[in-house]
Design a protein around this nucleic acid. Sequence first.
DNA 1: CCAAAAAAGATACAGTCTGTATGTATATGA
DNA 2: TCATATACATACAGACTGTATCTTTTTTGG
Lengths: 195, 195
Amino acid sequence: MQEKSRRTNKQRSEATRTALLEAARELFVEKGYAATGTPEIVARAQVTRGALYHHFDDKAAIFTAVIEQEAKATAEAIEAATPPSLPPPEALITGGKAYLQAMQKKGRARLVLVEGPTVLGRERLEEIDAQNGNRTLAEGLQAAMDAGLIKKLPLGPLTAQLGAAFDRAALAVESGGSIDEQIEVLEALITGLRE
Amino acid sequence: MQEKSRRTNKQRSEATRTALLEAARELFVEKGYAATGTPEIVARAQVTRGALYHHFDDKAAIFTAVIEQEAKATAEAIEAATPPSLPPPEALITGGKAYLQAMQKKGRARLVLVEGPTVLGRERLEEIDAQNGNRTLAEGLQAAMDAGLIKKLPLGPLTAQLGAAFDRAALAVESGGSIDEQIEVLEALITGLRE
DNA sequence: CCAAAAAAGATACAGTCTGTATGTATATGA
DNA sequence: TCATATACATACAGACTGTATCTTTTTTGG
C-alpha cells in the first residue's frame, strides 16, 4: 500500500544487497572478518539473516563480494591514472603511485591485503586481482623488459616480489607512514632494475 | 602407581604443553586457524579442553605460542647461516637465502606470513619478529648504507619493502615455485640498490 | 610420613554463532 | 486474477568458545 509495495523485485534485491555489502564492509574494517558476526551485519543493514543467506551462500561469500568491489575500484583508479600512451618505465611509476593512492581508501589495505589472503586463500585472491591490480604491473614489467629498459628476469617472480613491495608500502602508509618515503623506496627498487 | 605417577609437575606440564603445541601446529597448517577447533586440537593431543585452557588463555594464545616457536626457529637458522664476519652486501644475500630456506619448513610460511597477521594483527606480529627475522635485514641494510655500498634510503620503508619481497618469495616457493628464480630476482633487487 | 595446599587436568554449563529448513509476504506473468 | 516464483522472515539443530566447578596428582611444612 506504500511506495515500497511498488518496488520491483530487482530494486528490492539491489537495495538490500547494497545495504548488506555496506554494513559488512564497515564491520569487516572495524573488527575484522572473524570477529564480525552475521547477526551484527544484518542489524546494521536493517534486514534479517534470512535476507543475507538469500543473497549470499555463506559468510565467506559476502566477504568475497566486498573484496571484489575493492579490487575493481582499485583497478579502475589505476587505469584512470595511467593513459595507455605512457611509455613503460613511467607507466610503472605512475601506476604504482595510483595504486598506493587507491589503497588509502579507509580500510581497503587491511581488507584486501591482510584479511583477504586468510579468508579466501591466496590462490583465490590472486585470481581476483590477477584480473585487476597486478595485471597492470606484470604488463608494465614485460613491456619494459621487451624494450630492453630493465634486466631480463623471470616475470612471475619479479611481478610477485615487486607487487609485494607495493602492498607492504600501502599497508605502511595506512598505518601512518610517510607516503613519500615509501614512493622513494619503490622508485629506487624499480630504477635499480635498469640494465 | 604406574610410572606416570612419578612424573614431576614440571614434566607433566611440559609434556602436555608440547603435545598441545604440536597438535595445534599440525591443524593450523592443515586447515588454517579459523577452521581449527579446540576440541580437535585436544583430541589430537590426547588431552581435554580443560588442559588446554589451563595452559593457554584462549585459542589465540596457543596460536601465538606456535608463531613464536616458528619465529625463533627461523631467526636461529639465519644466525647460524650468516657468520658475523661476513661483509654487508654478502651478508644480505646469504641471510636472505637462509631465510628462504628456513621458511620452507612445511607450513611455516603460511602460519607466519598469512595467518599470523590476521590473527595477531600486524603490529603484534611485527613485535615478535622484529626481535627475530627482520632485525638481521635492517642491520644489514644499515651497514651497507653506512659503508656507502647502496643508495641512502629511509631505513624503515626499505626494510619493510625488501622484507615483503622476501616474504612473498618464501610463499611462492612453498606453493611450488622455483627457489632459484626467486633468489635471482631478490639478488637483482638488492644489487640494484648499489649507488 | 602425613595432612593441607597448590598445581594440573577433567567435566559441565551458558552464551553465541553458523547454516538450514520452513514459513510468509510481495511481485510477476499467464 | 490466480498461480508461481522470488524475496525475505522465523525457528531450529549443531558446534564452538570461554568459564566455573569439581577431581586428581604433586608438592610442601610440620
